[in-house]
Simulated assay, not measured.
Amino acid sequence: MYKRKIDVFIKSHFQKMNLMLLLYGARQVGKTTLLQRIFPNAVFLLVDNESIRQKLEEYDIYQYQEWLPKNTKQILIDEIHLLSNPGRAAKIIFDHMTKTQIIITGSSSLHIKNQASESMAGRFVSYQLFPLTFEEYVEQKDYRKSHKTDIIDRILLQKKEPLNKPLLFLKNDVLSNVLLFGGYPQLIKTPANIKYLKEYVETMLFKDIIELNLIDNRVAAKLLLKLLAHQIGNLIDYTELSRRVGVDQRTVRRYIEIFEESYILYRLYPFSKRERNVITRTPKIYFYDLGVRNAIIDNFSPIQQRGDMGAMFENFIISEFIKANAYKQDRYHFYYWRPKIGAEVDLVLTKDDKITGIEIKYQKLGESRAFRNRYKEAAFFQVTKDNFY
């Protein structure tokens, strides 16, 4: 089985601490596969299984000890968010089975936070698994046997590969495939599988949201998600979305938060040091996976024929930075910059006192001077299809 970038932190978790390990991520990004590979001897409890769910919802340590194998060293509770009170079940096991290592997955951080913030407080450390990075995709396709440096190393730190070997694949072809079909692990075995992506959107994408009763108007939610998918890289106009969906702005904001906490999309907020020359405080919208996004709008036209090619590449690059930052635990914060005068900068990264501007263009163009003139101390890079990998 292939390794993931996050492996090193998951493997060393219990060597460093005795807290529960909680792995978040959308359904089918590979959470269970990864954890069963790293913890092959853990007792596996799938909450999607009704009998397992009923047993866990007894919330009684004596009942747990009756049906769990004796001397259980590790327990893997898969999709714990489906419990009515996920934090209570985890807390009971953690507090009473002190020699047992507890590993948990969840596809809805919103439900876990709402239901478990108090009971699990101070008892867990969370990690997030995303769809495949470009490096992971290349590795799993067997194009190259070892991982290259990630996008933060290559662009921000300007690190070079120790061996400058030629690529064993056509980079632009692989990029086009990822932009169209995304990075869900299932697509390694069945590439360009539009049927899989469409079925995922129709069944799995809303599965937890509906089962957990997080949304009361499914028709409005699906329409809102489709409108957002058409607007990647654009400012969110809550008023216009409210008008087109037919619900109030508060509902629009709540649904977007649910989509975000379910790892479907994310918002990027403007960078500002409380400056008057920043034109907006409104966030932009992006999707964690472009294959899912393209399935939502039902458009798998070739990249070169699309009017949204630039927006898709921008979405892809920003997501690659977010994944690398999470996997490396690098502590970067992400924004965009949009002044009243001058061209905007697609991505701004801050860490401690350092500021870095990233201009994202599918093809190399002249660089914007506005950001560099405003923040003379900042580093600045342009990322294109030619230098991102």
Rank of each mutant, 00 (worst) to 15 (best):
L168V: 06
T149V: 12
P185N: 06
L214V: 09
P162Y: 05
L179D: 14
D150C: 05
I209W: 06
T133S: 09
I188C: 05
A220P: 11
P191I: 08
G182S: 02
E202R: 10
Q231H: 05
I194N: 05
L212K: 14
L175K: 03
P166D: 01
L132C: 11
V138A: 10
D173T: 09
K141R: 15
K141L: 14
E139G: 14
V178T: 08
L223G: 07
K226W: 02
H147S: 11
K198V: 13
M204Y: 15
Y196Q: 08
Y127M: 04
L205C: 02
G183M: 00
K165Q: 15
N177M: 01
K141F: 13
A220H: 05
D153Y: 10
A229S: 05
Q231G: 00
V138G: 03
R144P: 01
R218A: 01
R154T: 00
K145V: 05
Y137M: 02
T133D: 12
Y200G: 13
N213L: 11
N177T: 04
K222M: 14
L205H: 04
N177S: 09
I151D: 12
L227Q: 06
N177D: 14
A229G: 02
I194D: 04
F181H: 07
A192I: 01
K148L: 07
I209N: 06
L197Q: 02
Q231K: 05
L175P: 07
K226G: 07
K141T: 12
L132D: 06
T133P: 10
D150L: 00
D153I: 00
S176T: 04
H147A: 06
L175M: 03
V138L: 03
K160G: 08
R154E: 07
L223W: 05
P185R: 06
N213S: 13
R144D: 01
P166R: 02
H147R: 15
V201P: 10
Q140D: 04
D173S: 06
S126I: 12
L227V: 03
N193R: 14
R154G: 03
I152Y: 11
M204A: 14
F130I: 00
Y137R: 04
L225D: 12
T203H: 15
E161I: 04
L156K: 12
L225Q: 09
V138S: 06
T149W: 13
A221F: 15
K189W: 10
V178G: 04
H147N: 03
Q231T: 01
F169Q: 11
N164T: 12
V219M: 12
L156W: 12
Y200Q: 13
L224M: 13
L179G: 11
N217H: 10
K145F: 06
K207M: 12
G183E: 00
L168R: 14
F181Q: 09
I210V: 15
K195E: 00
I194T: 12
